[in-house]
Computed example of a mutant assay.
Amino acid sequence: MSNTQKSAMDLIARPGEITLGIELPLDNDWSPAGDARRREEGRPYGVPDLTRYPELVRQIDDARFAALWMRDVPVFDPRNFGDAGSVYDPFVNLGYLAAATKNVALGTAAIVLPLRHPMMVAKAAASVEQLSGGRLILGLASGDRPVEYPLLGLDFEARGETFRKGVDYLRAAWKNGGLPLGDGRSVSEYDLLPKPTGNRIPMVIAGNGQQSNDWIAGNMNGRFVYPGDLNRMASQAADFRSRRAAAGHDRGAFISAFHLDLADDPDEVATPRRFGARLGRNSFIDHMARLQDVGVDHLAVLLRPSRRPLPEVIEELALDVLPQLRSTDTKTRAA
């Protein structure tokens, strides 16, 4: 991270532009051809093809996308959810990405904090922050899969309170002055190493974590929301920023996602699908401009529905979309 860059958040929240990131896993199993290939290989639905993962990661990093995002799915539940997410343990994966990439922010969307002791999360996150040169964005959530809690002997209904206590612990553990006990006290005889740069790591919340909007604005550097109606997203972004201003904080980062099937024809109009669409790049650029207009700073795209080969899609996004997004005039990008 350069001397002028203050935080990994600077990689995704840039004045005058909307940035683009890629969500793992990197396959196209949700396309018709990809699903047929999955069946032939005998993989359960939702378990991705990871054979080209390393080369695609390097392509994304070299192309200077803003971020790579991964989910936290501890237990594959094919009956109720049918999606294995990024498969790899998120912190092991982050360690690999810290070495395999040089430019992109490394984001989690999101670590299910109540499932882990916050001391171990604090140490793992600080390790990634140091090894990546300050590129970690720690996305956190309370979890929406009830099956995981009883498997670990944890109370699903108490996850909101556990989440808040966990966030407090993380902040205390990253500071100098001893190891927190979780009750407001600390033990000066012990400490947690390494410490992150500046004794802090930017945190964003995915969903609401069972928390109030005031708590989110006061404690999280960013908010990651599901894609949806633009008016709703505009209201969410404005509310988040007004509450942050009232708490004396900077504007923070407002983040969303999109399931992208990029058409060959750059002028193909959008055919909506759940959480995204099939569309040409010009329509996608227009959509990004509208998102920026309503207050979105960063969009994480999932490429699993893509009918085209992923290297080809990534290359088109890098060559023909990213330069358009770096314009400060959203009204004339697609002109």
Rank of each mutant, 00 (worst) to 15 (best):
S186V: 15
S186R: 15
V187E: 15
S188T: 15
E189P: 00
E189L: 15
E189I: 15
Y190Q: 15
Y190S: 13
D191Q: 13
D191T: 14
D191V: 12
P194M: 11
P194T: 12
K195T: 11
K195I: 12
K195P: 06
P196K: 10
P196G: 12
T197S: 13
T197Y: 14
T197Q: 14
T197E: 14
T197D: 12
G198H: 07
N199Q: 13
N199H: 14
N199R: 12
R200P: 04
R200F: 12
I201K: 12
I201N: 10
I201G: 08
P202W: 09
P202N: 11
M203C: 13
M203Q: 06
M203R: 05
M203S: 00
V204A: 07
I205N: 01
A206V: 00
A206L: 02
A206N: 06
G207T: 07
N208L: 05
N208W: 02
N208Q: 13
G209F: 08
G209R: 03
G209Q: 00
G209C: 06
Q210E: 08
Q211W: 09
Q211G: 03
Q211S: 09
Q211L: 09
S212L: 01
S212R: 05
S212C: 08
S212E: 10
D214L: 10
D214H: 12
W215G: 06
W215H: 05
I216F: 00
I216E: 01
A217V: 05
A217T: 05
G218T: 11
G218V: 07
N219A: 13
N219T: 09
M220I: 00
M220F: 13
G222R: 03
R223V: 11
R223M: 13
F224P: 02
V225D: 05
Y226G: 01
P227W: 04
P227T: 02
P227H: 04
G228E: 02
G228N: 01
G228S: 03
D229P: 01
D229Q: 07
D229M: 03
L230W: 07
N231I: 10
N231V: 12
N231F: 02
N231G: 14
N231W: 03
R232E: 02
M233N: 00
M233E: 02
A234R: 03
S235M: 10
S235F: 04
S235H: 06
S235N: 11
Q236H: 06
A237T: 01
A238Y: 08
A238M: 11
A238L: 09
A238K: 14
A238C: 10
